[in-house]
Structures are given as C-alpha cells and as structure tokens.
C-alpha cells in the first residue's frame, strides 16, 4: 500500500490493520514517533495528519488518509522548525523520549491557534505525558515559538 510520509510516497507491504506507528517504525524505518502506551494515552507516538495531532499507535495504517508528518521531516533545508528552535532555547528535553510527540502536538496547536492561551495549551498538550516533568519549559517554549512563528506556515507540506 501507499503511504505519504513527510512528503515522500512510500510503498509498504503491510497488513492494513497494523497501527501506523509500527508501520512507520518497523517497516518504513521512520523512528521519530515513539512507542509509549499503544492505547492513545501518552502521546509519545504523535504525528500530524491534515493539521491534526494524531496518536499513530491507535490508527490502522490502512485508514490513513493524507500526508503523515513526523518529527523526522520537521527540519527543512537544514533549518529547524521554530518549535524545535524554541525547544533548544528553553532546553526542554530531559530524557527526551516524550519530546518528539510533544513537539508534534505543539506544531499542530500553533498551526491551528498561532497564539494560544494557557488554557488552550493545557487542552492541546494534556494528552502528552512527560515522566521527567518538563512541563514548565514546554509551556514557555510554546509561547516562545508562537512569538517567533510566522502566521503563514507551510502547513500543507
């Protein structure tokens, strides 16, 4: 079956019932999205499809409709995405395991709401667990990225 990942069309020989996460990780070799729970309870596997943050562990690959954006495709022409830059500036990660998911959720949030309030950040980000407790820096990095991000972002690529 065909799957578009970060703008590239892949031809994968997989059971359409296989969750997108495992099709990406084990079959397509795209390792940015992480496995944390398998039941849409932690956000480690978050990817963006059609501007929506999606838990790839709970979506059969056969049901995917649209380009799957993962953290692996966030750097463009050697330039980091403003969210990644803000994450660097604020030194957000500790163990880092949740951060690919956190960053993709933040990307989806800022594309929908360029200047989110604290309540909107809470809403969009509470599905992303961080056992290292990096939340205060996640919040400040989102605000920093919001300030730095052009309102028109190439959301559709």
């Amino acid at each position: 079956m065909k799957l578009v990942v970060n703008g590239e069309t892949l031809d994968l020989d997989v059971d359409p019932e296989m969750p997108l996460l495992w099709a990406l990780r084990d079959v397509a070799g795209v390792k940015g999205p992480k496995f944390g729970c398998g039941v849409a309870a932690c956000g480690a596997c978050t990817v963006v499809i059609d501007g929506m943050a999606v838990r790839s562990c709970s979506l059969p690959v056969g049901d995917v409709d649209g380009d799957v954006r993962t953290i692996d495709g966030l750097v463009r022409d050697g330039r980091m995405h403003p969210v990644q830059k803000a994450w660097m500036d604020e030194q957000v990660p500790q163990c880092g395991y949740c951060q690919a998911g956190q960053i993709m959720s933040a990307v989806a949030l800022l594309e929908e709401i360029p200047h989110p309030s604290d309540a909107e950040i809470d809403d969009a980000m509470q599905g992303n667990l961080c056992r290292c407790g990096t939340y205060p820096r996640i919040r400040s990095a989102i605000k920093k990225a919001a300030a730095a991000m052009p309102v028109t972002l190439d959301a559709e690529t």
């Binding site: 953290i71 692996d72 990644q84 994450w87 030194q91 990660p93």
Partner: peptide, 17 residues
C-alpha cells in the same frame, strides 16, 4: 547547553527502542 539537545529535538534514533 545540554550536549544531547539537538538529537532530542529532532527525534534522532538514540534510544534502546
């Protein structure tokens, strides 16, 4: 600046999994 930052904000395959 943490030495592991870049790998961790770009989703690099650095973990056991």
């Amino acid at each position: 600046q943490r030495t592991d930052l870049l790998a961790k904000v770009t989703g690099a395959p650095i973990f056991g999994i």
